[in-house]
Design a protein around this nucleic acid. Structure first.
Length: 908
RNA sequence: GGGCCUGUAGCUCAGCUGGUUAGAGCAUGCGCUUGAUAAGCGCAGGGUCAAAGGUUCAAAUCCUUUCAGGCCCA
């Protein structure tokens, strides 16, 4: 009777496992790649190809690789790998940014009282440790590159190039010296960075001080009243700032028989009266916007000097009088306002916070400024310039180390003149391809607005600022000397600057006796900002300008800009042709997580790599539109796991169905005559997918690759092509032409799929590829498939589109029949399909039955498509399970259909 | 506060220069299958396109404002 025919079928077979086991398999594959120098072999294979340089922006060498860093590096890798497979030679030389405050700060915090040299040695060790950690993490993500020879900004060779670039800046007259206020610790006699400042509550004298108007409107009729909590800065006052749009009043105030005609902001009259005891006498004489005060001169309260009234947007209406005392040497806003109005930078205070002779009041010279506060108040009162005084509690910056209150103090700094670079930089910006396009606006905005570049730092962990001082304390900026220093640094490292004393260094550089040097260093943004000069232009595999820089959107102001400025200074052009930016990683609710200290969920890339595998992390990167904020959540990883499994299973069933055919080198295929409509259609779809993916890779729109391949695997292949061709693959004779035709199509599809997936699923694509091609050939050495014009088949596409509409009609009818318990399996149905006549005539009924996966189809021409279901009277074939009229008609095989009977006969 | 940008189903994305009932995959629900089986197939539900105004014969698509979010400044 009914025998078991299972072993007579051509069932799929493959060793490619359904379960990925990525966390175990990936490290094995990495080891194999490393042992066979896959990166080197790829480069060698492309040695004659057109060059494409993606220049790596160096991450800072501290901390673990978190999802934001992983996103960046994987995006770069997607570019490099897709360019490689598009036929380019795309080397990747990774780099690290090593110098800078965050490392120095950590080192200094761990152990105090280190010499600069000790700080530098420990900082270098710290950087090396994290370079090694990050390098392993990047490699683990499947990122290919020259990991054994990265560029480090602390390598002596790199440091020397920084100095050589600096020499050119000096030659071009871009570097100048000027005073600029910085956070200054009077206790430690050193400049501080913002991170080194801690805030404490403290009570100071708040003083309302009048500045009698001596020129312009209201001359000799009134005084402008300012409010300050740092009376000690008054000797450095040079101006008064008012808000241009806010309303100010001229009004008489009275208190204890005293009368004052004052100008102050309308909104702050009430708080002024409350704090000072003064009361308004009648209505304001006049009220006007602050801009009307611009240019007025006001007498300094105790020095023979006039303060000019300026307008500034930073003036607020929440405290004070709306008239802000400006001392350009003692405040950030004060400084920039003074700078734009060409005021001098006055800062009559020494390293210990004591007044210098410049203060203009002999009795105060040598006094510590915080002790001087009451003295200044007394002076104001004596001169009748004090309108009111009140103790004021506020949060004030303190030095984290010496615990002394911090002052803003102007010290000598070096600058790069941006005005000289601004126009050429803006021009260079227009010549760059910005992705997304709005990046151009953004960087142009920052370039237009940025002030001169402060390039000196009073820090130890950096490249020494190559400035020398003559015996009479004049700064020496000499390109030739800087180049000699660069040679010395290239040979012996930049520690030489800190190891040698003045005399030894002067001797080494052939400088006159008595020449001294200081311990200032160069801003680290110069370090990374000259990488095009130090790396791209020097590295034998690279080129300057690079084809692409790719970083997060904060780098419009950071590395993109610093690199642009230095490149314009050196070559008068941008260092990149294309600039790609990506957003930041944000949580499901759109909140940032990369940098938040309060975020408690794991953000280390390692966490997800160990849990899901690097290919899943890469699939995540490929799935999102990186030009926006990048969403990230556990749920997304669950979904991605489903997508991954779908892709993997598709590869697996293709492999299984190809188990009895050889891998065709160069993908030949059976002649079109062997193809049925569905074969022709899937090959047409494949050409489209190849087109779409190639275009999406070329435009760096990786999420479109993801969508296209996902759709292709899930819909076109899994639920259509593979499902439809199952019958012929399993039940036909192994070498039946239509079976072989389908295998030829599947082989081509498999090959193309592996290649198109390879940049994203680096491990899985390689694993699948190895099951077909043999393990000695890497998919990463292949080129992307080219669309095969001979397989374009718009007609097949059109036909199948129509057939799919009919399929939906049938599907709905069958679903209904199922619910009515008329049938279970769709193969039990007898379907009468009414449809357009051309389907009745142009495609064989058998082929339509196969396409719709039915046993029993009757076609009738009709205007509107309609399907009617009954239970088929045909018996079920014991082998192929279809209910066919021929079952029972063949004497030798009463339980088989004609097709299956013929196959069995042929086997015997 | 300023500059640049974003906001379409539970999730990720389409939707070109405004033009038929806003699409896809995944997820969800209900079935089928047990010869891709810790798989596969079918059907179904789900969106006032952040909100409010405006331009237009017509807006997710253009303009304004608001709200929410991001980066960079202040």
């Amino acid at each position: 009777m009914s025998q078991n025919y299972k072993e007579t079928l051509n069932l799929p077979h493959t060793d490619f496992p359904m379960k990925a086991g990525l966390t175990n398999r990936e490290p094995e594959m990495l080891a194999k790649w490393e042992a066979s120098d896959l990166y080197g072999r790829i480069q060698a294979a492309r040695s004659e190809s057109e060059l494409f340089v993606l220049h790596d922006g160096p991450p800072f060498a501290n901390g673990d690789v978190h999802m934001g860093t992983a996103l960046n590096k994987i995006l770069k890798d997607l570019v490099v790998k897709s360019k490689t497979m598009a036929g380019f030679r795309a080397p990747f030389v990774p780099g690290w940014d090593c110098h800078g405050l965050p490392i120095e700060y950590k080192v200094v915090k761990e152990s105090r009282d280190l010499s600069p040299l000790e700080v530098r040695e420990r900082s270098a060790a710290f950087a090396r440790k994290f370079i090694d950690i990050q390098r392993e993490q990047f490699k683990r993500l499947g990122v290919f590159g020259d990991w054994d020879h990265p560029y480090l900004t602390m390598n002596p060779g790199y440091e020397a190039e920084i100095l050589r670039a600096f020499a050119i800046f000096v030659e071009h007259g871009l570097v100048y010296k000027s005073l600029k206020p910085v956070f200054w610790s009077t206790g430690a006699q050193t400049a501080l960075a913002e991170a080194e400042v801690e805030y404490q509550d403290r009570t100071d004298a708040a003083a309302w001080v009048k500045f009698p108007i001596v020129t312009g409107a209201f001359k000799d009729k009134a005084s402008i009243v300012i409010w300050t909590t740092t009376p000690w800065t008054l000797p450095a006052n040079l101006a008064i700032a008012v808000h241009p749009k806010e309303l100010y009043v001229l009004q008489e105030f009275r208190h204890q028989g005293r009368s004052e005609m004052l100008v102050l902001a309308d909104k702050l009259v009430a708080s002024f009266c409350q704090a000072s005891g003064f009361e308004p006498a009648g209505e304001p004489v006049e009220s006007f916007p602050g801009v009307k005060l611009e240019g007025i001169g006001a007498q300094h309260p105790f020095l023979p000097r006039t303060a000019i009234v300026l307008t500034a947007d930073f003036v607020t209406m929440d405290t004070g009088t709306g008239a802000v005392h400006i001392a350009p040497g003692h405040g950030e806003d004060d400084y920039s306002l003074g700078k734009t109005n060409s005021l001098p930078i006055l800062s009559p205070v020494d390293d210990h916070g004591r007044y210098t002779a410049e203060v203009g009041l002999p009795e105060l010279v040598g006094h510590y400024v915080f002790d001087a506060n009451p003295e200044i108040v007394r002076l104001l009162r004596d001169r009748g310039m004090l309108v009111a005084e009140q103790p004021y509690q506020h949060s004030y910056p303190y030095c984290w180390r010496s615990k002394t209150p911090i002052i803003f103090r102007a010290v000598e700094q070096f600058f790069i003149r941006i005005d000289q670079l601004r126009q050429p930089a803006l021009q260079a910006i227009t010549e760059v391809n910005w992705i997304p396009a709005w990046g151009e606006n953004r960087i142009a905005g920052t370039v237009e607005a940025r002030p001169d570049w402060v390039i000196s730092r009073q820090r130890s962990w950096g490249v020494p600022l190559p400035v020398f001082y003559s015996p009479n304390n004049e700064a020496i900026l000499d390109p030739a000397v800087i180049r000699r220093l660069a040679d010395l640094v290239a040979e012996r490292g930049s520690n030489i600057w800190f190891e040698l004393d003045d005399a030894a260094l002067a001797r080494a550089l052939a400088l006159p006796e008595g020449t001294r040097h200081r311990n200032d260093t160069i801003d680290v943004w110069i370090d990374s900002g000259v990488s095009h000069f130090a790396v791209c232009a020097r590295h034998p595999a690279l080129r300057d300008p690079a084809d692409m820089y790719l970083e997060a959107t904060d780098q419009h102001r950071g590395w993109f800009q610093s690199s642009l400025m230095t490149s314009v200074a050196l070559h008068n052009r941008a260092p990149y042709k294309t600039c790609v930016t990506h957003g930041f990683v944000v949580d499901l609710d759109g909140k940032k997580i990369s940098k938040s200290g309060t975020y408690s969920k794991p953000m280390d890339a390692g966490h997800f790599v160990n849990r899901h595998g690097a290919d899943l992390v890469r699939l995540w990167v490929s799935s999102i539109n990186y030009t926006d904020d990048v969403p990230f959540s556990e749920e997304m990883f669950t979904r991605l796991g489903d997508t991954y499994r779908r892709i993997r299973n598709t590869l697996r069933i293709l492999l299984g169905n190809l188990c009895d055919v050889a891998f065709p080198e160069g993908s030949t295929s059976a002649p079109p005559s062997e193809f049925t409509i569905v074969d022709r259609w899937i090959l047409e779809r494949l050409q489209q997918v190849i087109d779409d993916c190639r275009a999406a890779y070329a435009a760096y729109e990786f999420h479109k690759v993801y969508q296209a391949l996902n759709q292709f695997c899930a819909v076109d292949l899994s639920s259509l092509y593979i499902d439809i061709t199952k019958d012929r693959l399993y039940c036909d004779a192994p070498d039946s032409p239509r079976r072989r035709g389908t295998q030829a199509a599947m082989s081509q599809i498999f090959e193309a799929l592996c290649k198109l997936l390879a940049p994203i699923l680096v491990f899985t694509a390689e694993e699948a590829w190895g099951h077909r091609a043999g393990n000695d050939r890497s998919v990463h050495l292949q080129l992307f498939p080219e669309p095969n014009e001979s397989q374009r088949d718009p007609l097949a596409r059109e036909m199948v589109d129509e057939l799919l509409k009919l399929r939906a009609v049938i599907g709905q009818a069958i679903e209904k029949a199922r619910q009515e318990k008329l049938i279970g399996n769709a193969l039990e149905a007898a379907v009468v399909l009414e449809c357009d006549e051309r389907f009745v005539t142009s495609i064989p009924r058998e082929e339509l039955e196969e396409f719709f996966i039915l046993s029993d189809l009757t076609l009738r021409a009709a205007a509107e498509a309609r399907a009617t279901i009954t239970r088929t009277p045909n018996k079920k074939c014991a082998r192929c399970w279809r209910h066919r009229p021929s079952v029972g008609a063949i004497a030798a095989h009463p339980d088989l259909c004609d097709r299956c009977a013929a196959v069995i006969e042929a086997r015997a």
